[in-house]
Amino acid sequence: MKILETFNLTKTYGIQNAVDNVNMTVNAGDIYGFVGLNGSGKTTLIRLITQLVRPNSGSFNLFGEEVKQGFFQSPNSEKRISSMVETPSIYLNLNAVENIRAQCKIANVEIADRPQKLLEFVGLDPNSKKKANNFSLGMRQRLGIAMALVVDPKFMLLDEPTNGLDPEGIIEIRNLLVHLNKEMGITILISSHILTELLKFATRYGFIHHGKLLKEVTAQEVFDSCGTTITVECSNPELLLSKLPKDFPTQMNDGRITVRGGDEAMPQILQIANKNNVLITNIQKTEQGLEDYFINLIKNEDIKQVFPA
């Protein structure tokens, strides 16, 4: 089931397209990693979906239904969404319980023991009288997530939820989000700069650059594209390519052979070349992570913009 589907969603500020004809899809059960540079349009897109800003054109569906401006929160509890955009939206002059109670009233949900349960769930002390003003950044993020959980959402949009957190805080938030996704069945869209962190738990990715969605891929596709690549330059590339085992993912460009594989591939290539009297002039091993994958993607896009086909 498609939880979110956007159709040519566009938001323009002045002459700049902050979000440019974006068509994206988030499926039920996804942890959708939304990747982009600063100012690429990630936050604007989340703000469009949460109706904090109005699109210039385009539309979007939530839970398969078209969203009309101003009325996007479904009365159906199975179709509720929540979000945390950049900094957590909390009243700094209230304590954690008072914040949750205020949010319950705002969202029109029964309070009962919800504040205690939610605060315990995110690892905050429900008996503490400490004002949110005195909370650490990690505590504020957790309170923000607890407030987003007030409506029992089925879809959460989180914009940089680990921003400014220390490594321990990042791990805590990650574990919390994985728990929400796996145990509570909440679909999550999360934007983050920390790509290595996203790589640990996202199941799908969307890459955005200059407001345009460049690509949507599954975690498996990213995994397949990333990893170790060996590039070989030699005296007879056609011969070497024909002799390499068929299970080696290979390709040849401009007389250079690239082979995807780990450390075990390198000695095999050298051995085959030696056996067939092929002189290797250059052999390089490169590791590509999600960052490299993303950087290559945006480089290609930038080249396309400068030199359109």
């Binding site: 904090l52 009325f71 929160q73 969404i81 929540s82 939206s89 949010q103 705002i106 969202a107 409506v151």
Partner: peptide, 8 residues
Amino acid sequence: IRNKIISG
């Protein structure tokens, strides 16, 4: 104010 809007 975001909470108020996002809450529907």
